[in-house]
Nucleic acid binder design. Sequence first.
RNA 1: GCCCGGAUGGUGGAAUGGUAGACACGAAGGACUUAAAAUCCUUUGGCUUCACGGCUGUGCGGGUUCAAGUCCCGCUUCGGGUACCA
Length: 1115
Amino acid sequence: MEYNFREIEQKWQAYWKKNSTYKTEIDQNKPKYYVLDMFPYPSGAGLHVGHPLGYIASDIFSRYKRLQGYNVLHPMGYDAFGLPAEQYAIQTGQHPAVTTKKNIARYREQLDKIGFCYDWDREIRTCEPDYYKWTQWAFIQMFNSYFCNDAQQARPIAELIEVFELQGTKDLNIACTVDLQFNAEDWKSKTEKEQQEILLNYRIAYLADLRVNWCPALGTVLANDEVSEGVSVRGGHPVEQRFMRQWSLRVSAYAQRLLDGLNTIEWTDSLTETQKNWIGRSEGAEIKFHLSPTLSKGEGAEQNTILSQSKRDKKPDFFTTNKLDWSLLHDHAKAMRSEPTEAESILWEMLRGNKTGYKFRRQHQIDRFIPDFVCLEKKLIVEIDGEYHLSDEQIELDEARTDILEELGYKIIRFSNEDVKSVPHFVVEKIKGELSKIESSSEKASVQKAVSLSFGEGQGEVIEVFTTRADTIYGVTFMVLAPESKLVKQLTTSEQAKEVENYLEATKKRTERERLADRRVTGVFSGSYAINPVSGTEIPIWISDYVLAGYGTGAIMAVPAHDSRDYAFAKYFNLPIIPLIEGCDVSEESLDAKEGIMMNSGFLNGLTVKEAIAKAKEYIAEKKLGRVKVNFRLRDAIFSRQRYWGEPFPVYYKEGMPYMLDESRLPLKLPEVDKFLPTEKGEPPLGRAKNWVYLPPAPSEGGGESSNSTLQNDNALHSPSPLGRAGERFPLELCTMPGFAGSSAYYLRYMDPKNDKALVSPAANKYWRNVDLYIGGTEHATGHLIYSRFWNKFLFDLGLVCEDEPFKKLINQGMIQGRSNFVYRIKDTNTFVSLNLKNQYETTEIHVDVNIVSNDILDIEKFKNWNPEYKSAEFILEDGKYHCGWAVEKMSKSMYNVVNPDDIVEKYGADTLRLYEMFLGPLEQSKPWDTNGIDGVHRFLKRLWSLFYKENTLLVNDEKPTAEELKILHKTIKKIIFDIENFSYNTSVSAFMICVNELFTLKCSKREILEPLSILLAPFAPHIAEELYHLLGNSETVCDAIFPICNEEYLKESAVKYPISFNGKVRFMLELPADMSKENVEKTVMTNEQTTKYLEGKLPKKIIVVLGKIVNIVL
RNA sequence: GCCCGGAUGGUGGAAUGGUAGACACGAAGGACUUAAAAUCCUUUGGCUUCACGGCUGUGCGGGUUCAAGUCCCGCUUCGGGUACCA
């Protein structure tokens, strides 16, 4: 009987399905083992031959572990939300759910052909409401949590509210966006809206105004890991920086734990290294530089902004703007004053002449704005809004203006025209109330900072910088602010205003990509100076885009002698360079290395750099010039996407503040929309959904009814939120979650995929714990693998999962590259010349489909039919054949080198495909796919088959195996176990080949040899192994057999063939008994006549005998 | 620039410091066959020799060792990651 792989594979795949062979249940009597493949995104292109590589490797390991007696969890599912399906939907109008479903079906069909042992009962899809319910649920938990830096742990936000009520922010050390300071009284005096805004500063899932990566082509914001070199990873579209209010996850809070955790898991060095770099921990110091007071005296003072005034608040003059803005606006302000509106007149009469106890001014310029009324002493602004303030645009402008004024320390209250006209006294009382709450600006009230919310310590009087080189403080010759820094506006003098403005404009226009590509030195002087806190020297403050707003404080102290970036800047702008290391030459370049002896550095002189860093830090902390600080590069993950095909946020808005839906209302299903494009107003696609609003229930309803089953936009939501009043409508969030949302906790869901009460039951989690072996590509090193570790740690903090790390051991499979073939067309003809003759002509190299080329020989007939253009092609052959050229390239359609696994299965069978993928080379290395080699493994299977059958006779017999046969078997067992455990599958396939070749030579068809061999092979080639196992008379599946054990007894050799070498060169072999002693080996070798020949009469200087290995004679 | 991997025949690759090139592809020759496919046998790093054999050989240059593809130092080069991260 022939080896009929088609019949065999179909038969056993059907058998496994029918018998639920791969169904997994919790079994307390067996140890668990969890093997996971990285979640595939089901793309429309289907699988090519590179995709299953990791799946085959994990499948082998799963089957091996099962044979060793483990209860193995080996699931598969789909990361089904994502951009490609949505882009396709935009182009074709086809709903992404439809294409996704189709793609999944295709994927599944392809996977099924390869014979994987997945438990498909556990399949999950991120786009299914039953699944994303738990993504939304986790988001709510994050919203309701903050991170305590001292405990290094997430905690309920309710706890934080209690603390605020008791002591404000005193003694708190918690992760936040901005460092706020307020006391219990401040907190209690806030409105709910204000309190909610403050809480966002601490929540783990929070909404904040951030500089984000905006991709205009995709119409969405992207996370840092989704952008590479200034373009989107998906699609390669340019990305620009924008300031937007976005959901974010406070991943940065977990930076230290994410770093520490790397030591507890078995990942490859390169991957741990990549994660370490991405987290980017640097130890250093945050140093405070005060503004130079000399500048606020005399001439400089007038030109300077309000900051220098608030420093010297005894002066009665309030310069609330700069010369430039003043000259531009003051005529306008005058005009406004002369033509007040009715409401303005009414209010002005009630405020003027210290009637409130404080002096008010009307239409007074502040920065570049002209507010209606302002009390400068209390920094309170009163605005009266007319009808035009209701338009969307105006609201936006007002908000921007409010932000800037608040940054400058002003509090703004607004009244409508109607209010002032109808209840003027009420308005005045409200203003008085506000005035009494605010301490005078001269008292430097901390509350003011809390009020403004958007500004930290210092109000611009102090510039903080972060440095890892505190030792170089004496070499600071200037400071640099990032163009986006909030300090820029405040430190720019009027003289420099124009220039700075031009620079900021120019910088803003450049995309990230342009900035990276064009590394010219650019920058502008702000006009201000700061004082070096250690040396006391005055240094200029510059602005340049080589300083990043997002890292550290957005400002640096520049040490041109010892930082190459500062050096380039100093050279360009002719700023001083002070060398600090003895004997260093900074005339051509800076010395960035942390080595040498300090000089020009006061108390640090004579120390090594290492010592100086420590001493400088100590000094700075002691003198309170700053503090020792650890900084991380890791940023919070931006979690909003202005797209359709993702998880909706379980969020609605009340007075602009976000609130979570009640958990009983989950899942909040993705609504239907008419188009997958933004609305005319520029809102995300969900803005098109009808009735995408939250309607709170009437109080009597109590919210007890079961979760709605129809789409949200058919009807409104009901929730028992105390905030809602019947009849109110609150808008739901219009953004959706990003791709990594659904893939961050999926490994937990596989443990208990059908549970509708919890993400995973405690029992299931306690049994399966975490992933023992995770296999996937390196492309997830900084995205998925950071986010899912973060997500898991968060759930761990909440006590919902029992392991702190999700993936114990991780292996990256290498990429399978394509091997392209070329034909050579003679220029301006339709004639093709064979590879080795092409140099005689002028030719063009053309990619040719590798599927019509075999062993680099072109199938001419197929080629002619491949493309109508070649129908009449002519060929110049060598030995009657057309030889193609070849090259290793990326596997892609455009290179015509894509090989489909279906075709391989069709031609050779799944077992051959599995073995060949493994045989190609080491799992972790990338290597080219060349179908040519596949015949070798296919022949091996046929040869194995021939041990069982000759024509139609079954050869298997019960004869006792010889010692030689046993040795062959046990040698193989030993090798296979070693190789599987070291993921060296290419060498195991070789070992199988050697074994079968040897048994073939011996014509061995003995059951005692073949049965263990078929079990041994089962993880690699399960179909043929199952068939052979049954041929041997077994009626159970080979999957539940017992893996053979190596008996060392059979491996013992009675004799050793010693290589006899002279000066390390092997000259001849000598067979000696294995148990011969060292002395006897030496004696025997020395008396051998061949030895005498090679000694050439000389006396050996030394004789080395390594028992069982080698003999070396040194002459 | 920095970090991490590689570099071994015509090709994919093997080798706990101990016979470099296992295993496989390809190629060449042969057997079976009317023929082809399939299968089986032999050869196959290079140079040299009729042959036995000899010389040489793991990107390059040094070193450690009785012995180096393997360990150390310095380069070349190709991948991958990352980047004005202070």
